[in-house]
């Protein structure tokens, strides 16, 4: 028997669909079930349905709002910095990269490092007695900033995150910049357009959709940050570096409040989904 094209597609796609259902679908369903249940490690197999109580608990927990505020600030600042720096590098280094393609490989190295490893690495690099950066500060100035003190830790983790993920924005912008037809630039040059005006009025508008995509991806990634902060400074003094993901992790494993943790995870998912939907809507409008 010969299959139709659509039947063939369905058959070929089915292993991937089944794989995703098993690996993603099942945990999602389980999370939703636990999110609406009273569940802890003692009653892992027999959760009791409690309706919206977990969501009520989460939304009345000051720790949740502190984590949400931290994540929001962190995501907005890092997404902005990564996009701004990535854009600058993509445009500024474009002539160099055209002639030396290998530079791209060097520039994206930070992105290849596992975020948890990045946190551990900076934990060593910034340590006052073992780290090279404070060492040279003391050598040259007889003093060193305390990079991980309560007053400066937020700025430090912003820098660490920005250093790691600027290459991601850079890659997207580089591709978008190179995709702008050369004829447009040549025509503008013939008309006497200066470089800054060319960038502002011609190149940047062409790159706007990519800018939106990069910004939203980095925002969502920043909002759910976990690994590098957790390995670098943990939840922070008084919970001052507790992101949404760290809040969920600690609520789940450290406090054993599985239902509450899952409710917070569902809220995090909804926020990410809404931001993504908003991003798509804005992109369609800009096009």
């Amino acid at each position: 028997m010969r299959l139709s094209s659509s039947q063939e597609n369905a058959v070929l796609a089915s292993p991937v669909v089944l794989f995703l259902l098993a690996l993603l679908g099942f945990p999602v369903v389980l999370s939703v079930v636990y999110g609406f249940s009273e569940a802890n490690f003692q009653a892992l197999m027999s959760p009791t349905f409690v309706g919206l109580e977990n969501f009520h608990l989460v939304l009345n927990d000051i720790g949740f709002w502190n984590a949400a505020w931290f994540s929001l600030r962190f995501a907005v600042i890092t997404a902005f910095l990564e996009c701004a720096l990535g854009l600058f590098l993509a445009v500024y280094l474009a002539p160099l990269i055209r002639n030396h393609g290998w530079m791209v490989a060097v520039l994206i190295i930070p992105m290849i490092v596992a975020p948890a490893m990045m946190g551990l690495m900076y934990r060593l690099v910034l340590h006052e007695f073992a780290g090279p950066i404070p060492f040279y500060f003391y050598q040259w100035f007889g003093w060193s900033p305390s990079f991980l003190s309560a007053k400066t830790v937020f700025q430090t983790i912003i820098v660490v995150e920005t250093l790691q993920w600027t290459p991601f924005a850079f890659l997207l912008f580089m591709a978008a910049y190179q995709a702008i037809p050369q004829e447009i630039r040549e025509a503008a040059s013939v008309d006497g357009t200066r470089p800054w005006r060319m960038f502002w009025k011609i190149e940047l508008p062409q790159m706007l959709p990519t800018l939106f995509v990069a910004g939203f991806i980095r925002f969502i990634d920043g909002f759910r940050v976990f690994d590098n902060i957790y390995t670098l400074v943990g939840a922070g003094p008084g919970g001052s570096t507790t992101s949404m993901s760290i809040y969920i992790y600690e609520t789940f494993l450290r406090r054993g409040e599985i239902g509450k943790a899952m409710a917070a995870a569902i809220l995090l998912f909804l926020v990410a989904f809404l931001v993504l939907a908003l991003g798509q809507y804005l992109m369609r409008r800009s096009q």
Binding site: R123, L126, H127, E128, F129, A130, S146, F147, L148, S149, A150, K151, V153, L232, V233, G234, G236, P237
Partner: peptide
């Protein structure tokens, strides 16, 4: 105690002492 102490655990504290400071 170092200003970074708020991010210190066992290993960092030992490193500070071991450095002779």
């Amino acid at each position: 105690t170092p200003a970074d102490s708020t991010s210190y655990e066992y290993a960092e504290a030992n490193a500070a002492y071991s450095a002779g400071q």
